[in-house]
């Protein structure tokens, strides 16, 4: 797609549709006629009726738009990027994070830090992990780059805090082990696309 249409800033030649704003009355008589016409046309009552109708619908037809926010919450899109969650493997319950450090590397606001070590099972273990939500801009790169779908964006968007720096540790974000059955598979930013299989080449296997 070319950028011509964006680069053409000569607004005068574009195809604007002029709204029919009528024409101003000329002369005292015309003005008077307009006043009379408008006065007795009852436009003002149309306005009154519209608001009244809205009120009646709101009160009696359950058309109230208010969400009592702290007590009620609207569902958010899976692509919404709120406070991060750390997911577990459903089969074993072990956390998914392998400590690769890609999120730490890609983070453009430099808010992710992690310590890793060689554990007893000869695996890389995340010994500590923290996100500084005072710096996080919720760009979603960490979730997108994560090869294990371990760090994802969750649905907690209330991140007001008393201090500028607010740190979340690994355990704070990790799915509690007793709530593993409630863990939702992530379908937002950085998740596997439904047609991912079509986009990769198969590697032959000797088994």
């Amino acid at each position: 797609m070319g950028l011509e249409q964006f680069k053409n800033r000569n607004v005068g030649t574009q195809n604007y549709t002029m709204v029919d704003a009528g024409h101003s009355p000329k002369g005292v008589l015309c003005q008077f006629k307009q006043v009379v016409k408008r006065t007795f046309k009852g436009e003002l009552f149309v306005g009154l009726w519209v608001t009244m109708k809205a009120m009646l619908k709101a009160l009696f037809a359950n058309d109230m738009h208010t969400v009592k926010y702290p007590f009620e919450k609207l569902p958010i899109s899976p692509r919404y990027r709120a406070i991060h969650d750390m997911l577990r493997l459903l089969e074993s319950g072990h956390y998914r994070c392998i400590g690769c450090g890609l999120c730490e590397k890609i983070c453009i606001s430099n808010c992710i830090t992690m310590d890793t070590r060689y554990d007893e099972n000869q695996r890389k273990e995340v010994s500590e992990y923290t996100i500084n939500f005072g710096r996080c801009i919720f760009c979603g790169y960490c979730a997108e780059v994560c090869p294990e779908l371990a760090i994802v964006h969750g649905s907690r968007y209330e991140n007001a805090s008393e201090q500028r720096a607010g740190f979340s540790l690994f355990e704070d974000m990790l799915t509690p082990i007793d709530k593993l059955n409630l863990q939702q598979e992530y379908s937002g930013f950085g998740s596997v696309s439904p047609n991912a299989d079509d986009n990769i080449k198969q590697t032959p296997l000797a088994y």
Binding site: G101, K105, Y118, K124
Partner: peptide, 8 residues
């Protein structure tokens, strides 16, 4: 082993 990524 496993203490740091080289890029850091």
């Amino acid at each position: 082993v496993y203490t740091s990524n080289a890029w850091d």
